[in-house]
Amino acid sequence: MNIFRLAGDMTHLASVLVLLLKIHTIKSCAGISLKTQELFAIVFASRYLDIFTDFISLYNTLMKLIFLGSSFSIVWYIRRHKLVRRSYDKDQDTFRHYFLLLPCFILALLINEKFTFKEVMWTFSLYLEAVAILPQLVLLQRTKNIDNLTGQYVFLLGAYRGLYILNWIYRYFTEPHYVHWIPWISGLVQTLLYADFFYYYFESWKNNKKLQLPA
């Protein structure tokens, strides 16, 4: 494992911890899109189907369990927890996220590396992850006061995918035959979706002002 990959995983882990910290200790999910969280839960459930069939490493299995457990518990918190539920911006979080599922699934059926159940589901999870942040970005645009934890959460999520791109570039030059167009292109699309957010995030940081996205 190279340093970019490890840094990417750690940023991803940090993003989940920041979100859990906000939800668990402050008992608030204000500014967080349930739609995006539901899509992430579907992403991990369809990607990690191999968790009980293929053993890669203890690190790999543990991280998969963490991402599965955290994504489903976040959805549970926002939907079911008495206090957290109350802070959910339901009227603002209106993105029709179910409409993303079918196109991603059809694309995975059409464009994949191997037409097997596990491989199609894995490909589907990559396509879905690429666009899963959209409801969250729309919600951020509508939020007047984006709190620090929410801003950091989205920043860490974007950084995670950016670091994965560096990891792929590194692996391409250091490992023979390492060519995987599907994760690369969907990962690139996913990172590009954060470009606008990154710009305003750094602007607010530079000028020491509160983060706000133009509607």
Binding site: R5, I56, S57, H180, P183
Partner: peptide
């Protein structure tokens, strides 16, 4: 092999 190489990523 190739399958493992790809699936070792999260």
């Amino acid at each position: 092999d190739e399958a493992v190489e790809k699936h070792d990523e999260l």
